[in-house]
Design a protein around this nucleic acid. Structure first.
Lengths: 187, 187, 187, 187
DNA sequence: CATGAATGAGTTTTCATTCAT
DNA sequence: TATGAATGAAAACTCATTCAT
């Protein structure tokens, strides 16, 4: 793995373990096994580093969300695919998921960065799905962003419960959860 | 207003504007219009100050949640009252709500404080409601703390979108969201 | 003496001893007997500190040059007064004189700072003297700034010889040097 | 041009633009368009590089000073030739002149290098001229090195004013300055 | 010879905290 | 109580130099 990746991974690890505010360069270098100057070959400063990690996480999640997505499948199939992917991403990459969740609305992440496209248009895909569902009279009429945020909140809460080991999430339970989220936005 | 209150308000303001990790005492003293030594008359150190602000915010929210609560109303009425209060608290006191939401799990907030009662038993009230609903077979069977977290997560997610101006939140939309959160926990 | 003065003096000393480029804050703090953070209560950074020292030196010299100056004395008397003061300043404050001499034309000192008034109009007094002398037909016709610079170069060279102990400078010798400089600009 | 020359030129340029103390290898490599390791094929380290540039500048000036010098001309003619060459060198090669002037006494330039012959005996030529003039009773009695320094100081001072655009230096003014410098060392 | 990624010692800078007033 | 100058440990950052390719 490249030094740059080492550093980004160590950053994500440390943020997960101790929170952004207690990530110091000293800890970072030790964890990433690089010399103290090395980071400056790749990142201008700490803020830049964190932003890069954020961007990479967002891009990764954006890509992950669309895995196996079939635009011609039924509404529920499409919903299920997207939200299962979201859930699975959170299960496999808890550090990235939590980092995105925690910092997307913090002042540390600039507005423009927050609103930046993740390169996979996953956000637009979800929006389209919602609008489509509303047109068909299946999904409740409401601001599509609001609806998106609602779904995200549900999935996100489920994951947080999973993270603290409140319950296991096997295939059957995942299915139940997705269904539960689906019900929340039906007319 | 007392010096102590000045300091706590300035702390909350700065955390909201720049994030906990970039709140320095220098900024704090300037904003609160007090001398740099003054804080040590009221707080043992920075961590203590932040914990005090956290405690005050939690107490405030706890009190707010129970406004107009009628223990004898129907299950849904009680749910609606509590969650509407939660949503309204978030709308009226964004700094406090976000601070609680963002830092409840940060290492900066001591564990004992995080689990402490807010002085209004609002937490217990919500738990009781959930257990009651499950006993009646209306609310899905799951750990009651987890269920509480699920509801909080939904409301929180919606508020965050609102904070960054993704959408407005009028009476109609508030009603919809409470309903959706309700549906999400039904059997 | 104030901490600020301690720091400025130590700065001047170190620049004199080792040159600007090898003045580090570590040396500075040790020499000035202050804590490492203290400097930042007075100066924004190293450049700011050096500029302040430069300004103070210039102001001091500007004030010194006009000591005992009588605008109604004869041309030569006035010339003698100004240049003797210049020479005496250099003899009593070698560090300041050399610092001004070395850094006035270095890229470290911004053009605007170099051209800044020293607060005593000593520069203008010299210019006026030259123009007056030229009007009277005593001083050679030439650009007055050029003439000023010429005189400065002579005095400055004499001082540098003095600094390296090439000769003593008693009253009689000072008189001779001033006379020598005077001859250099006569018609 | 060879890599070595590229590096030396870039060094001189950067010293002129920002001062020795802020010339970093990073800037140097970029300016000279070479890889960061390349310099170590030609110079042992930074100090060595700067000393090489210094030596080259001194040699160039030494050669320049003797242009058109006629050992059999009159004392004043010889003086004029040498000092005009000095002035013209400064006008045509400001970077080299200033570098020599500014850093001759800096701790960065090794003492032995500073006192080293420039390869053209220009220094000895000036010394001889002075001693000759003193023997003839034309030039003031003083240490010949000091006299040399006095003359250099005058020329240098004039050039510095010229560099910062205080005044132009045309043929007439050059002639005047040489004459003034001459007068300054007469008995 | 030429390169540039990696390094870590050294430097600058920050900032919570103390303490004399 | 209220202050703010002074502090120094810790943090961020720089940069000459090395070395594998």
């Amino acid at each position: 793995m490249s030094k740059k990746e080492d550093i980004m991974m160590a950053t994500l690890d440390l943020i997960h373990e101790e929170g952004l505010q207690s990530v110091t360069f000293a800890k970072l270098f030790k964890r990433a096994n690089v010399g103290s100057g090395t980071i400056y070959n790749y990142f201008a400063n700490k803020e830049d580093l964190v932003n890069e990690v954020y961007k990479e996480s967002r891009t990764h999640m954006g890509e992950y969300l669309l895995q196996g997505y079939d635009a011609h499948a039924s509404l529920y199939e499409r919903f299920k695919c997207l939200q299962m992917n979201r859930l699975r991403f959170g299960m496999h990459f808890p550090k990235k998921f939590l980092f995105i969740d925690s910092y997307s609305f913090s002042p540390y992440i600039s507005t423009e960065l927050r609103n930046t496209d993740d390169g996979y248009n996953s956000s637009k895909t979800v929006q389209d799905l919602i609008v489509d569902g509303q047109r068909q009279g299946i999904i409740k009429e409401m601001d599509s962003h609001l609806c998106h945020q609602l779904i995200h909140g549900i999935i996100s809460s489920i994951l947080k419960g999973y993270y603290v080991n409140k319950y296991p999430l096997n295939e059957e339970q995942i299915r139940q959860m997705i269904e539960s989220a689906w019900k929340a936005i039906l007319v």
